[in-house]
């Protein structure tokens, strides 16, 4: 009986959590007049797929998703690469000022992007990078958090492995890519997924550095679609569904890495 109660409660809560997603999918398949009809239709008896085509082409969601994919991939690859390099230096190399530089890396975690974004806008504008992928990617290439996380992972690599590799003829560079990175693969994966998720969801920065279609990302595109397509509200819903597909795939394919990335990522805030 108590078990049944638990399932009932779980199901009610699941329905509440899912409802906004459900209604979005349903409304994307309804005609605007059906959406506005009262009482509302909660099931698409006659699904219309036209809204997806309209969002993809008329609403430029296709273009925006391509932009988002490029920018997100750029940020993810850049962050992971730069973090690997810096983390290796902090974990395996000795050089004067190493401790100080590590603190510098940690300090960057205490300066939120929201504190510096307007000056960064000026910098990107001065560099002539408004409305370019470069302008969207550059400020996010480095991550103190990622370097910190990977350094921790590298520090667990036994020193004897480094010695063995040195005798086997592997210098730092080859040891990094053939031994250290493969051994830190779970952390690299978690960091990649986390970077992808954060970069894909960015809103403030793409909003201010893009004012045309060339580099505008899908998040800004959604807000624009909502403003412009009020008469075809189903198109807006279709856009939301489309924009969420990559993250849904990410969630389904890399759930474990995502959980790891988020729990570690929360440290950063």
């Amino acid at each position: 009986m108590r078990l049944a109660g638990r399932y009932l409660l779980l199901s009610v809560l699941a329905l509440i959590v899912l409802f906004p997603i459900y209604i979005t999918v349903v409304n994307s398949l309804l005609r605007p007049d059906q959406i506005a009809s009262r009482p509302p239709g909660l099931f698409p008896t006659d699904p219309q797929w036209g809204a997806y085509k309209e969002a993809w082409e008329g609403g430029h969601i296709g273009r925006y998703m391509l932009n988002s994919a490029i920018v997100t991939t750029g940020i993810m690859v850049g962050q992971v690469l730069l973090a690997i390099l810096a983390a290796y230096a902090f974990a395996f190399l000795e050089f004067p000022g190493r401790g100080f530089l590590f603190v510098v890396f940690l300090t960057t975690m205490m300066i939120p992007f929201e504190v510096v974004f307007f000056t960064n806008y000026q910098t990107i504008a001065d560099l002539g990078l408004l409305n370019t992928y470069g302008g969207l990617i550059l400020p996010f290439l480095a991550t103190g958090f990622g370097a910190f996380l990977l350094r921790q992972a590298f520090l667990t690599v036994p020193g004897e492995l480094r010695d063995a590799a040195a005798l086997d003829g592997y210098g730092h560079w080859r040891f990094l890519w053939r031994v250290a990175v493969p051994l830190a693969r779970p952390t690299v994966a978690a960091l990649s997924v986390f970077a992808f998720l954060s970069a894909w969801g960015q809103y403030l920065w793409p909003l201010i550095v893009t004012d045309d279609d060339r580099a505008r990302t899908v998040q800004v595109g959604l807000a624009q679609l909502r403003r412009e397509a009020l008469n075809d509200i189903n198109v807006t819903f279709a856009g939301v569904v489309l924009a969420s597909i990559p993250l849904v795939i990410l969630l389904l394919a890399f759930q474990r890495q995502l959980v790891r990335g988020l729990t570690a990522g929360a440290v950063k805030g």
Partner: peptide, 17 residues
């Protein structure tokens, strides 16, 4: 690496991956 020596370590230092 150029000394033409091979070493066996206490922990074996095998590459786990």
């Amino acid at each position: 690496k150029d000394r033409d020596l091979a070493m066996v370590f206490q922990s074996y230092a095998l590459y786990p991956h």
